[in-house]
Design a protein around this nucleic acid. Structure first.
Length: 106
DNA sequence: GGTGTGACGCAGG
DNA sequence: CCCTGCGCCACAC
């Protein structure tokens, strides 16, 4: 293991708790765990992500890295995840948990 | 021990 | 919308 076992388990556990049609972000997971940073979460996902609904973890702007975007989009379409016209997931609606109290401009 | 890199994030130009 | 720099942390060379 390149990462602490308990940390890996914690990350995967959180990802599995994200319901269909909703998503969370690398930064949110990192903040929730209060340990390491977004990049560590990404590293864990790159290595163990296949075991969980990895497509429910997106970047802070709602986009998914090239190469994963195509497959992620299929899952999102099947789950009804809200997308923005830009092609990124609409975090204002899909973010989970619902910690998005300030709908700013809208 | 310096340097580059990555399934990241944010501020600036 | 584009690109740049910096912070972040672990790893490979």
């Amino acid at each position: 293991m390149r990462h602490p076992e308990d940390y890996v388990e914690a990350v995967l556990s959180l990802v599995e708790q994200v319901p269909p049609g909703r998503v969370t972000t690398y930064g949110a997971i990192a903040a929730a765990l209060g340990r390491y940073g977004p990049r560590r979460v990404g590293a864990v996902m790159a290595e163990h992500g296949a075991a969980v609904p990895w497509w429910r973890v997106v970047r802070a702007d709602g986009t998914v890295p090239p190469g994963l975007a195509a497959r992620a989009r299929e899952h999102h379409l099947a789950e009804g995840t809200p997308y923005r016209s830009s092609g990124a997931v609409d975090l204002r609606i899909a973010r989970w948990p619902d910690l998005d109290p300030a709908p700013r401009g809208q």
